[in-house]
């Protein structure tokens, strides 16, 4: 990019940054304008990514260049047309088939991902040694805490009620105690997540202010 386009770009960025920061003084037209520009560019960019990264290389070009070899692509083409038919109210029902297809594939991926991407690795990662001989007392206590935290936090999501029998009441009381402990571990997690979020947002704010303070004077030299 040329120096002039960089120069204009820096000033446009600075103007937009100030427009967004003006929200600190209250809701105002400048902020709203910036907000709408943000949505406009985001949607426009998403359209381009969808076309150039997926539709063009995976559907349009294969069908135009070698239609006989890629005849199976007629199926997603038809489903895509049925999906677009949802734009017309009288054809809305036709869009049910592509949505059903997307839901089926999405759910299967979610189940597979949850099982093989979350549950198994997390369970494997929780199988830790609590023997001080393996890594010292600090690590052993930490690992024990991690295991107790994982099990008790999971128990917090166990909503089944207790029975009327003695065993049921005993079981219910035990689960209640575990749930209480799990809630404390979840609170520690929330506190840590909150603190990390605050730090990341502050870093962004410092970055934007630094941009205004350092880049704009450079363009004026």
């Amino acid at each position: 990019m040329s120096d002039l386009s960089n120069l204009i770009g820096i000033w446009v960025s600075a103007l937009l940054t100030v427009m967004v920061l003006s929200y600190l003084l209250g809701d105002n037209p400048l902020y709203r304008l910036a907000e709408h520009l943000f949505v406009g560019t985001a949607v426009g960019y998403a359209v381009l990514v969808a076309y150039y990264s997926l539709l063009r290389p995976r559907l349009i070009l294969p069908l135009l260049q070698a239609p006989l070899e890629n005849w199976t692509l007629v199926v997603p083409l038809l489903l895509a047309l049925l999906l677009l038919a949802r734009l017309n109210h009288s054809w809305r029902g036709a869009g049910m088939a592509p949505l059903a297809f997307l839901l089926g594939v999405g759910i299967a991926l979610a189940i597979g991902g949850a099982l093989f991407g979350s549950i198994l690795p997390q369970v494997e990662g929780t199988m830790l040694s609590v023997n001080p001989a393996d890594g010292g007392w600090g690590v052993a206590v930490g690992n024990l805490m991690l295991v107790i935290g994982t099990v008790s936090a999971l128990a917090y999501f166990y909503f089944t009620g207790q029975g009327d029998t003695t065993w049921g009441r005993l079981r219910g009381g035990f689960l209640k105690a575990w749930r209480g402990l799990g809630k404390w571990f979840i609170m520690v997690t929330f506190g840590a997540i909150f603190a990390s979020t605050v730090m990341s947002r502050l870093s962004l704010l410092i970055g934007r202010l630094q941009f205004l303070i350092t880049e704009i004077p450079k363009t004026l030299r």
């Binding site: 189940i111 949850a114 979350s118 549950i119 994982t150 999501f157």
Partner: peptide
Amino acid sequence: AYPSTGGARGIILGVALGTILTG
């Protein structure tokens, strides 16, 4: 490394089990 990861792991496992059940 320890208590926060423990809590997060419990949440992740709970969400994953819920996802499987709903799916």
